[in-house]
Design a binder for these strands. Sequence first.
RNA 1: GGGCAGUUGGCGCAGUGGUAGCGCGUCCGCCUCACACGCGGAAGGUCACAGGUUCGAACCCUGUACUGCCCACCA
Length: 902
Amino acid sequence: MLPKAYEPKEVEQKISNLWKEKQVFKAKIDETKKPYVIVIPPPNITGVLHMGHGLNNTLQDTLVRFHRMNGECANWVPGTDHGGIATQNVIEKKLAKEQHLSRHDLGREKFVQTVWDWYKECGNAIYNQFERMGWALDQSNIRFTMDEARAKSVYASFKNLWDKKYIYRGKRMINWCVRCSTALSDIEVEHDQQNGKLWHLHYKLEDGSDGIIIATTRPETIFADSAIAVNPKDERYKNMVGKKVLIPLINRAIPIIVDEAVELDFGTGALKITPAHDPVDYEVGKRHNLEIISVISDKGKMINLPEKYLGMDRDECRKQTIKDLDAAGLLVKEEKYNHAVSTCYRCNSAIEPYLSEQWFVKMDELAAKALKAVENEEVKFYPANWKAPVMNWLKNIQDWCISRQIWWGHRIPVWYCRHCSKDGLTFTTDKQGKEQLAKVSFENGAKPIISHDKPLCPICGSSDTIQDPDVLDTWFSSALWPMSVFGWPEQTKDLKYYYPTSILVTGYEIIYLWVARMIMMGLEFEGKVPFSEVMLNGIVRDKDGQKMSKSKGNVVDPLDLTQKYGADAVRFSLISQSVLGKDIPYGENSIIGARNFCNKIYNASRFIQMNSEGIEGPLELPAKPKELCDRWIISRYNHAVKQAADELKKYNMAAAADTLYHFLWGDFCDWYIELAKARFNTADKKEVISILINILYGTLKALHPMMPFITEEIAMSLKKYIKNSKEFLIEEDYPVFNPALEDKQAEEEMALLQGVTGQIRTIRAQFNVPPGLKIKVLLSTADTKDLAVLQKYQNYIFAMAKLEAAQMGANLPKPKQTATGVYGTVTVYIPLEGLIDFDKEKARLDKELAIIQNGINNRKRMLDNKNFVNNAPKQQVEKAKAELEEMLLRAQQIKAAKEDLN
RNA sequence: GGGCAGUUGGCGCAGUGGUAGCGCGUCCGCCUCACACGCGGAAGGUCACAGGUUCGAACCCUGUACUGCCCACCA
């Protein structure tokens, strides 16, 4: 005997192994078919997958399976991302915790090797998770952004962009993370509103007289001030311009200058200019040729200032400076001030604007092409409201800082000859005593040699060449992903067949970091957008809508949930809540319904199979069933699968899931199976079983893209009954709408029977008729058609409403001690001697009547309105008329029943 | 400062012009021989607010409020 409840664990393991063994997901080029290609947004190898990956990949899997079942040549390309800074941070933390070592203790080579070792471990865990979630990725060919083929792509694109002079090196004010000790691009910086303070400081004139008061949020940078600036239009300070003031605490004299960048009405209207530590000030400094003084090191420590502050942390120095300013009587005012603070998107610490030499990609031309493509909708966003922000971003784009001062990543493919570039290179010695190239300066004579492998110096022929110490932004390799996965720049068969891909499915939070850049690179290198559609999923949040994070302790682990409820339940619950571009609040409760649905599917199947024993397959859906409920369920099924397919095509995943859920649970289980039960002992049995099995099998096919395991498991046990079934559901055709199976009449007739049944059930429940007690009813209708249906299919009502006997006819008189229900033209009288509570019945009828009366009033108002009758579509007018008629009839019947109670 | 979302029964959400649905929860009755992860029934909403367009608005337009997010060099 099969267990009563579905046990996903073993089933999923078994099915998963089977898929793997039979290589069901292996991509094979088939020129006769249209390719359907998705490249996975490669997860970072920073740890196991989280709920966001669960959602994102489940959506992709659903699409991939769906399209494959629609006859397309599907290829879903798996892989992972080396994850630059994020991964380096993870490994550094791990090293510190487990071995109390820093990366510098290991040295660059060993550290990088450590991360590679980690990749093997973490990558495998991720690939294993892919399998456990049932994602139809072709895992025979896994890509990693750091593997050799992808490294070649990175080199090729760097070389290409360098030759076009799009890549350059320059001294710029960039975003520097003192914790990660690296430059970041503009979009890797987050801006958090924080409660800070605005300090008003007094800068006295050289002669010790009044001077000027400035407002700043960063008093610790006063030591690096080069000037005080005011707006040229500012009358208040006119007489001071050109004079010099003294920096508090150190009494260095700096000039008062004018610059447009200063706002008249902010603070005091006077701005301290610190070119080394603020991007605006840097620009001002350039305009006025001001001295650049750095007082904060790349590690965030104070340098180049009085000994008292030397070596202090930024924050510590700020506190001390304020204290000292206050003591010196130069702190005029301290006010609360809410302002944006830049933070690192990887480690959250405050960003320092930092002047340094970095590598950049010139963006204007790349972005212009992408802008055009987005504007023309060569790339279409779902939901569409992302088009404008993307265009806006592309229009206002800044050059992309691509160098990172970390060790884990694609090392910049630029080399220097130690002889010819001698003056531009700075070396240090690491803890192993090894000489390391620390800094490169083109200004001082470093000459670049672009090369993937260690080159000979093209000038002096020396083999003593050394590679640039920086690595590339991790997004540089990601930008190439849709091409690099197919071996670009080689014009491989795969690239030709699979590129451009069909759709990108990703989260809206990386549109700029990733999506926009892929579009630019795709256009630049292959002349084609990498995907014509972008489907955006939301962020999976906790049940209260908060972002999940380890520090908050509100993380829901997909592995735990999968273990507990099954992968199908996790998948279905995510899909059911996934509306394009919208975040999903997800708690454990979210999954219960999906788990219950799995169980429902399982039990319905179990029941059908129990009753199929001894019946030989194959069983086909009868072409022309004569029984009403057979015609009905086939028609309903036909509509349900069509609607599901239509919704999937529009990327309304939740709507598709909802449709199939309600068809299977409502129509199929609650009505069809219930009605079928009585027929198992009749000559109909084989036909009923045929229908049950075929509709079930078809519904499993329709559900398969969303819940692959349970559908596969059940389908396998049904194969013996199914004609021309394939070994796996993914190889089957997705059910299609068949107009011949549509049966409007059957649907109408069933609706009447269901409605009447509903009336009887309600009354039974209201008057506490014992569930086991079979009752007699009277069904009265003046409508001959309805009457005929009731009479012909009275057995349906008998079974579903537990009747013992029924009297049917036109205008039957209402017996005494009777409860009344009305559905359409039909009045239901239920004699309930001893059970009926007249007051309760009256109240019930009153309420019913009030609702109908409201409806009647509405329709009357509409139909009395000439504008409605003249302007509204005929269909609507007819509908209102019909509804009015029906309501009037019902009202009349209820009124009669009520009067009779008195 | 600019932009984008959201505001629908206790909770979480669907619903883009014809008078509101789903899941969970609640209440009542059932262990009915597939399923109590179940079955049958019920209660519960002036669709944030104010105007406007329309014969008709949860849906379109304008404005307001609140919430969230993104972008932006007022220190």
